[in-house]
Amino acid sequence: MKIAVTEVEYVAHLARLALDEEEKVGFTRQLNDILTHMDRLSRLDTEGVPPTYHAIDMKNVFRADQTRTWLSRAEALANAPDQENGCVKVPRVVEE
């Protein structure tokens, strides 16, 4: 086992995922399987093979610096659970 249930719980917390006990055990097993497979890949000789940074072999896709209006404010806020004064309203974030 490379990772334990506690690590799954930690990552789930960071990602704001609520997992029940069964899911925690299930994901722990699946993630360990994936990591074991990674180990197998690591044994391959990759000397001289450039690292892959992206799944598709493309680079330098750019946009020109020109403005375009897309959404009205009403449209932009349409999905917000709550709003006030043209802003999205959220539970207060307390910075201590």
């Binding site: 750019f62 020109q66 403005t67 897309w70 959404l71 404010r73 932009a76 043209g86």
Partner: peptide, 30 residues
């Protein structure tokens, strides 16, 4: 392609990309 300008009325320089709507794709400003 939203305007980058200081001091505009709230949420008037937004689009599905910078609002993080699912299915949108960012493209780098050269």
């Amino acid at each position: 392609s939203c305007a980058n300008r200081f001091g505009a009325e709230p949420n008037t320089q937004v689009c599905p990309i910078c609002m993080g709507m699912p299915g949108t794709l960012p493209v780098l400003n050269k």
